[in-house]
C-alpha cells in the first residue's frame, strides 16, 4: 500500500521523524517481531494455510478499523461499527435472498444502508449536539436491534447467490498469479485501505476531517460548514462498515444477526495500536492496518502455541495500553 501520508503532526523539519511516523514504524517492527517470534516458537505458524487464516481474520477487523479511523481522526468516536456491520450484512441478505435481487444490488444496498445509518449518527452528533460516544452508543443498540428485527433473529443464508463467495473466501488473484492464495476479502481490505488513504491525504474530505479533529472551532470560524463535513465523516464510516458486513457474511455464507457486538472495540484497538490519536487530528490508515494485523497475528500465534483463547483477550488489553503509552512517550519527545 502506498501510504504517502501527509503527516499532520510532522514538525516539517527535514530529516526528523515525526511522532506519527515513528509510532507507525514501531508498530511495524512489533508486527515483524511477533511474526518472527511465533515462526520460531510455534510449530505450524509459518505455513501458507495459517497465513491465509491470519489474513482472513484480519480482513473484517481491518476494514472496520479503517472505517473508524475516519471518525477518530475527525475527533469523534464510533461505537456502532460492529453492529452496523451486522445490520448491513442482514440488509444484503434481505435484498439477495429474500428479494432475489442480483449481487451488485445487494452490495450497493449493504453499503448504502451503512452510509445512511452513519449519516443518521452524524446528524445526531452535529445537529443535536449529542456527544459522539453517546450518539453512537445509541446507534450501536439501534443497529443491533434492527438487525434482529429485520432478520427475524435468524441467520439469512446466501445459498441462492453462489457468487456471493466471491466477496471473501475465494481468491481471484490466485487464478491470475498462481500460488498467491490471498482471499478476496483481504484484497478488498487492501483496496479499501488504499482508497481511504487517498481520500484522507489527497482530497478535500480528508483535509476537512483532519481540520475538524485538530481544531473544530478554528475550522468553524474559517467559515467551514463543519456540521455537513461531520455528517459526511460518519456516513463514510458507515459505508465502509457495509463493506465489512459483506466480507464477514460472505465468509460465513450467511448474515448472522447476533454477531457484531464487540467488533467495535477490536476495531478501535487496531486504530489506537496503529498510532492514530484518540484526541483527533492525527493518524494514518496504514497504521490501522498494521494494528489489525498485530491483533490477528497475536490471536493466531497464541492459539497455535496452545495458549488458552481467553489469554489472548488479556494480551490484547495489555497491547492497547502499551501502544498508547508509546504514543505518549513519542509525542513528548517530539
Amino acid at each position: 500500500m502506498s501510504d504517502t501520508t501527509m503527516d499532520k503532526s510532522g514538525t516539517g523539519k527535514p530529516g526528523f521523524l515525526s511522532a506519527a511516523t515513528l509510532q507507525k514504524a514501531v508498530a511495524f517492527v512489533v508486527l515483524i517481531a511477533l511474526v518472527l517470534f511465533f515462526s520460531i516458537f510455534a510449530n505450524n505458524f509459518a505455513t501458507g494455510a495459517n497465513a491465509v487464516g491470519i489474513m482472513q481474520a484480519t480482513a473484517v477487523n481491518g476494514v472496520l478499523g479503517v472505517a473508524v479511523t475516519f471518525v477518530i481522526i475527525s475527533g469523534g468516536i464510533d461505537l456502532s461499527v460492529g453492529t452496523m456491520m451486522t445490520l448491513t450484512a442482514v440488509t444484503a441478505g434481505l435484498v439477495l435472498t429474500n428479494l432475489g435481487m442480483p449481487l451488485p444490488i445487494g452490495i450497493l444496498a449493504a453499503i448504502a444502508a451503512g452510509a445512511f445509518m452513519g449519516a443518521v449518527s452524524g446528524v445526531v452528533i452535529a445537529k443535536l449536539k449529542i456527544p459522539p460516544f453517546i450518539a453512537t452508543l445509541g446507534m450501536m443498540q439501534i443497529a443491533r436491534g434492527l438487525a434482529l428485527v429485520f432478520s427475524g433473529a435468524k441467520p439469512i443464508y446466501f445459498n441462492d447467490t453462489p457468487s456471493y463467495s466471491l466477496l471473501s473466501p475465494e481468491s481471484t488473484i490466485s487464478k491470475l498469479i498462481p500460488g498467491v492464495e490471498i482471499p478476496n476479502g483481504v484484497m478488498i481490505m487492501f483496496i479499501v485501505a488504499i482508497i481511504a488513504s487517498i481520500v484522507l491525504n489527497r482530497t478535500i474530505i480528508g483535509r476537512m476531517i483532519f481540520a475538524l479533529g485538530s481544531n473544530e472551532e478554528a475550522a468553524r470560524l474559517s467559515g467551514i460548514n463543519i456540521d455537513n463535513w461531520k455528517i459526511l465523516t460518519y456516513a463514510i464510516c458507515g459505508g465502509i462498515c457495509g463493506i465489512a458486513g459483506l466480507i464477514v457474511s460472505s465468509r460465513l455464507n450467511s448474515a448472522q444477526p447476533a454477531l457484531g457486538l464487540g467488533y467495535e472495540l477490536d476495531a478501535i484497538a487496531a486504530v489506537v495500536i496503529g498510532g492514530t490519536s484518540l484526541a483527533g487530528g492525527r493518524g494514518t490508515v496504514m497504521g490501522t492496518i498494521i494494528g489489525a494485523f498485530i491483533m490477528s497475528v497475536l490471536t493466531n500465534g497464541l492459539r497455535v502455541m496452545g495458549v488458552l483463547e481467553e489469554w489472548k483477550i488479556v494480551v490484547t488489553g495489555v497491547i492497547i495500553i502499551v501502544a498508547v503509552f508509546i504514543d505518549i512517550v513519542l509525542r513528548k519527545r517530539a
Binding site: S9, S214, E217, A218, L221, I224, G281, R282
Partner: peptide, 20 residues
C-alpha cells in the same frame, strides 16, 4: 484555539478558508 489549526501546516492554514 480560534484562529489556527496549529497541528496543520502554514499552507493548509492559509488556504483553509479557501480550500474549495
Amino acid at each position: 484555539h480560534f484562529g489556527l489549526v496549529t497541528g496543520m501546516s502554514v499552507r493548509d492554514n492559509i488556504t483553509m478558508a479557501s480550500w474549495r
